Amino acid sequence: MTPHEPPGHAPTLIAVGHGSRDPRAAATLGLLVDRVRELRPGLDVRLAHIELNAPLLPDALADVRAAASVPGAVLVPLLFAPGHHVKHDLPAAAALAPGTRVAAPLGPHPLLVEALADRLAEAGWTARDGASRATGVVLAAAGSRDPESGAGTRRLAALLGERLGGVPVVAAYASATAPTVPEALRALAARGRHRVAVASCFTAPGLFATRAAAHAPWIASAPLGAHPALAWLVLHRYEQALSRAPRRELAAT
């Protein structure tokens, strides 16, 4: 939001999750949205989903359009890379709702690195682990066939490795592309890294996050959920979209 735009007159922030059959997923994203509301009192912040969970994105946009006093919306994808949903599904939905913009995905960004590092620390990672020649990290993400998505995840892995003191961090994926988490674990083992943590690059519990954690030979971090840094990042992407020319935002910066 711009400095001259009071919260009550700002576009609605719609945080858009993928959707999951795991009942914990929508509840977790609801907590994240609650934290965003706490950070920006007065701003209309809502949750929507691309599929599987209510409210679906078209319904959320219809509700915003029905409120004549609300000047449009900004869709903030609760996704970490610019794959098909960010490049196609969200812009298609926005095109049907005049005044709607699409913000950049959440990653890569230093706030995301902060959240990932904190979740690893909660799982048992210490500064000593970062200095060990036996340790490594697999950054487990959903995966996409979009080359830009893979490049963003690899950049995020590099940033996390720097944050952890130079430990090797290998990006791995639950679907669509390689390497898988087991393949990344074998690659680290070939380098003598047998004490490997799995960093969960997922917003909420679900099938992919559960499968990735199950492969961990040592510790696995929890999904990012309502981490404060993630809430700040959602607001940052919203404000970025508002500060730029009125067009749909897709680039991760």
Rank of each mutant, 00 (worst) to 15 (best):
P105S: 12
R155F: 01
A222F: 04
E249F: 07
A187Y: 02
A184H: 04
E122F: 05
R46P: 02
H49M: 07
A103H: 05
A190K: 06
R163I: 02
L230G: 02
H236M: 04
L159W: 12
G161K: 02
A176V: 10
A158R: 13
A66K: 06
A241F: 00
A15P: 08
V70Y: 15
R195D: 15
H236Q: 12
A95V: 13
A97G: 06
R65I: 01
A209Q: 08
R119F: 11
S144M: 00
A141C: 10
D59A: 11
S149R: 10
A252R: 05
L39H: 14
V234W: 02
G130Q: 09
R145H: 06
V36E: 12
H84K: 07
E239N: 14
W218E: 04
L112Y: 10
L207V: 13
A121I: 13
V45E: 05
H227A: 15
L32D: 06
L156D: 03
P41Q: 09
P58L: 00
A92N: 15
V86R: 01
S221H: 10
A115T: 06
G130T: 11
A60D: 04
P147H: 09
M1H: 08
H84C: 02
L13W: 11
R145K: 04
E51V: 11
L233D: 04
T210I: 02
A251Q: 10
A204I: 09
R37V: 09
E162N: 00
C201E: 03
A251C: 12
H18G: 01
S243W: 03
L207D: 12
G72A: 09
V113A: 03
P3F: 09
A73S: 14
P246Y: 09
V102E: 07
D44I: 01
G192F: 02
T28H: 06
L111C: 08
R133S: 15
E162F: 00
H194M: 03
P58A: 00
T153A: 06
A117L: 06
T135E: 02
R133P: 15
G143Y: 00
L120D: 08
V169H: 13
S243E: 08
A123H: 08
G19R: 00
L242N: 02
A172H: 12
E183S: 11
L79W: 12
V113D: 01
P228H: 14
R186K: 07
L160V: 05
D63C: 07
D146N: 14
A121V: 15
A15R: 05
R128P: 05
W218V: 06
T2R: 14
A95R: 15
H18Y: 05
V181M: 08
